[in-house]
Write a protein that binds this DNA or RNA. Structure first.
Lengths: 235, 235
DNA sequence: ACCTGAACACCGTTCAAGT
DNA sequence: ACCTGAACACCGTTCAAGT
């Protein structure tokens, strides 16, 4: 029986059922996420998409968390690293790279959430890390501080995306939540919460993006003034 | 029937089935989380604990996300705010408050994860915010910068706790993950990822807590050098 | 070796019906 | 008004058995 290549009988209609491979599974998972959101990228749903049973996937993927991590790294291929080698102020260029990363996560909030829980370390994440480090190097940030700052910068972007993850797939209870939040903050009495009361609506000013960019700058500016403690290096 | 007050105490040993109240439900949820972790605080499991069906809970709680938010705020009662009014350097005291918050989340990683997705705004969270703002005020941080920095500081602590959320309830696949991560970083070739290669093991130095404290200091030091953009205030 | 049917042990949420 | 049985529409993961 050499029915390996062309003689695949299409059972349903669509494409001939392809052989399962890890790459194929992840590619299908990415498609599924783009089409229906990460919530739908479950083992069962994905298996259905691949015309098989969920148990089959476990030959190629350890569990759902690993699947989602692989999907994320795949998505990270789209991060725009061109500012790394562009002209201009290194801080600006660094923030541009970081915003490129974050914008991607804003588009797939579920992925941001999963990235907070378990940061990926695939190829594309490594490329992003390298790019950020190159810019910090160019900016003259001390190596040991740069080593810790990359993590903080990326984690900050990830967390911000995850927080504003009330995606388009969710219904409009966001507005409601926001009202409640605003009411809570504004209702803080002058007596019990004087600082909150003093700041008032300024606590809620700015868009997530504006705050994010500001936060990146705070971190970049702060690193010059904050030495890393003396700490043993692993191995 | 005035069985309202005294029969409240024993939840441990088969109590008479108490009337459902929102507070009672949340208190039971907190107990359940302390005993079995947040993963087990599901509508169904909680209902079982309360000797009723899951549908009954929906009279008092909108959904699982709201339930978890309520549990978190309850837990936040334990944050140690005493450094706010203590003696000493305001930066140090601020970091102590922030670490008290973060340590709590480290103990209940699932909660940290849910806090990243939807920051709570209950009473205790308001108290924490007030405390942080008071210290920033004492430190002479400009009000509009302080208003944005509180959020960043708390979010940074939350995200760090969530990331290191490979809790005690998970099995030991963490070690394995870490090995893989280290291998990925160290295997980055000098040619393709020169900065990563140059930093080598320094990228992995320090404990989560050491990095967290450092990050707090970077933010606190950076805020003095980073003005907030001109942005409209809501309302 | 690779694949899978079937099972185990769960989920959140809704709704019609009861008290 | 409050409560609930039952149902709907899902989950992740394992494992013995097949090819």
């Amino acid at each position: 029986m050499t029915a390996n290549s062309a003689a695949r009988q299409s059972r349903r209609e669509r494409p001939a059922k392809p052989a399962l491979t890890r790459d194929g599974i992840i590619a299908t998972a990415v498609d599924l996420m783009r089409a229906e959101g990460l919530e739908r990228v479950t083992m069962r749903r994905l298996a259905q998409e691949l015309d098989t049973g969920p148990a089959s996937l476990y030959v190629y993927v350890r569990n759902t968390a690993e699947l989602h991590a692989a999907v994320l790294d795949e998505l990270l291929a789209e991060v725009d690293l061109s500012p790394v080698t562009a002209e201009g102020d290194w801080r600006e260029r660094l923030v541009r790279v970081l915003m490129s990363y974050t914008d991607l996560l804003f588009a797939y909030p579920g992925l941001a959430r999963s990235a907070v829980a378990a940061r990926p370390f695939g190829t594309y994440f490594l490329n992003l890390t390298e790019g950020v480090l190159a810019l910090l190097h160019e900016g003259g940030v001390a190596p040991d501080r740069a080593a810790w700052l990359v993590d903080v910068l990326l984690q900050f972007g990830t967390a911000t995306a995850a927080e504003h993850a009330w995606g388009p797939d969710e219904d409009g209870h966001n507005e409601e939540d926001w009202e409640a939040l605003a009411a809570g903050l504004m209702g803080a009495s002058e007596r019990t919460h004087p600082r909150i009361a003093a700041l008032g609506p300024r606590l809620l000013s700015g868009s997530p993006q504006e705050r994010l960019v500001w936060g990146f700058h705070v971190l970049i500016n702060g690193v010059a003034h904050t030495p890393v403690p003396d700490v043993p290096t692993p191995l």
